[in-house]
């Protein structure tokens, strides 16, 4: 009896709410119909269709990898490539994904080397099977050793140093570098790079899976460290949250960032954020797939045994206007 009642209530709500909804359209914002931008548009390569697996260490739901994936998809569309995207943040399981791809007999593997030692065995198998490998994003120092043709990525340490340089020339003395995932090598390297150029840099760890905790912890840090004059977020969503912390703490610290999304680009245009270092993730995805296609097409090897750097590129108020449009498309 009580069940029926509850079901009825739910059913009633299910009917009434959308009915109400029809009369409650928003006058602004929301989805623009047919806004989806199918990238590419150019002619498709006439080469035979090949299979490529893109295997990353992305945690589910990370915006950064969305852009990498979009780049890879666009390259696949142009190069007549069947792209398979897989990811697992845990090194051992990422290696298993690589082995699965080898078992499937793909024509090329693009892989991130966040944990090179975990992947070494799997990549050896790929080499033995004659499958070309391109690495991207992380692990440029181990890429050649593990048998990859080339590497597309930005050196995290270099990127950090670029930020540090820029901050130092603008006269900032006391940055706080906010790491959203404790024990993440790439993120640690970024902060280390900043610290190399601005010695008084402090690192703050926050729990990236909970934005409210990110906000309150950064607020706490700013209350404790009055000397802080700039806060650096290591990912676009985190930087945007840090902006809230700063207004919450009543601090006059400035904000700098790594990575990019449309909202962040807008904030740079508006002058709320100093600049961001873009490692151009779209290019990493695009380049990796394209390099595999080039290898298939003519045995080309890009980069001459050296990593191909996709960054760091600093986007500040001057250049942001132009980047913004691309960021809205999800390309930057």
């Amino acid at each position: 009896m009580s069940h029926k009642l509850s079901w009825r209530k739910l059913a009633a709500a299910a009917v009434v709410v959308p009915a109400l909804a029809l009369t409650a359209c928003s006058s602004s914002g929301g989805r623009t119909p047919e806004a989806a931008n199918e990238g590419g548009g150019g002619a498709i390569a006439s080469t035979e269709r090949i299979n490529v697996a893109l295997i990353t260490h992305a945690a589910p739901g990370d915006t950064f990898w969305d852009i990498v994936r979009k780049g890879a998809e666009e390259a696949s569309a142009k190069d007549n490539v069947e792209l398979q995207y897989l990811s697992d943040p845990e090194g051992g399981r990422q290696a298993q994904l690589v082995e699965q791809a080898i078992d499937q007999g793909v024509d090329g593997i693009a892989v991130t080397l966040a944990k090179p030692d975990a992947l070494a065995g799997a990549l050896k198998k790929a080499e033995d099977a004659g499958i070309p490998v391109v690495s991207l994003n992380a692990g440029e120092d181990r890429s050649a050793e593990l048998g990859a043709i080339t590497h597309f990525g930005s050196n995290e340490k270099l990127a950090g140093e670029a930020v540090g340089d820029r901050l130092a020339t603008e006269g900032y003395k006391h940055p706080i570098c906010v790491i959203q995932e404790q024990g993440h090598v790439g993120l640690e390297n970024r902060c280390a790079g900043v610290k190399a150029k601005v010695p008084d840099t402090e690192v703050l760890y926050v729990q990236g899976t909970d934005m409210t905790q990110v906000e309150s912890t950064v607020t706490a840090k700013l209350q404790a460290t009055k000397a802080a004059d700039v806060v650096i977020g290591l990912g676009a969503p985190f930087t945007l949250t840090i902006l809230k912390s700063i207004s919450g703490a009543g601090s006059d610290a400035k904000v700098a960032s790594f990575d990019m999304n449309a909202e962040l680009a807008q904030k740079i245009v508006d002058g709320e954020i100093l600049f961001t270092v873009d490692q151009q993730p779209w290019l990493q995805g695009y380049g990796a797939v394209d390099a595999l296609w080039l290898n298939k097409r003519g045995g080309f090897e890009i980069g001459g045994g050296q990593p191909v750097l996709t960054g760091p590129t600093i986007v500040d108020q001057k250049s942001a206007e132009q980047v913004l449009q691309f960021a809205e498309e999800g390309v930057r």
Partner: peptide
């Protein structure tokens, strides 16, 4: 929901409440 149908966000808020209670109900049931 609000974004896709371009609606007043309160509609989405109400629907989210229904969904959250529904998930709880299903768990319990």
């Amino acid at each position: 929901f609000s974004w896709y149908f371009s609606m007043n966000v309160w509609v989405g808020v109400a629907l989210a409440l229904v969904m959250s209670l529904g998930v709880g109900f299903i768990n319990g049931w």
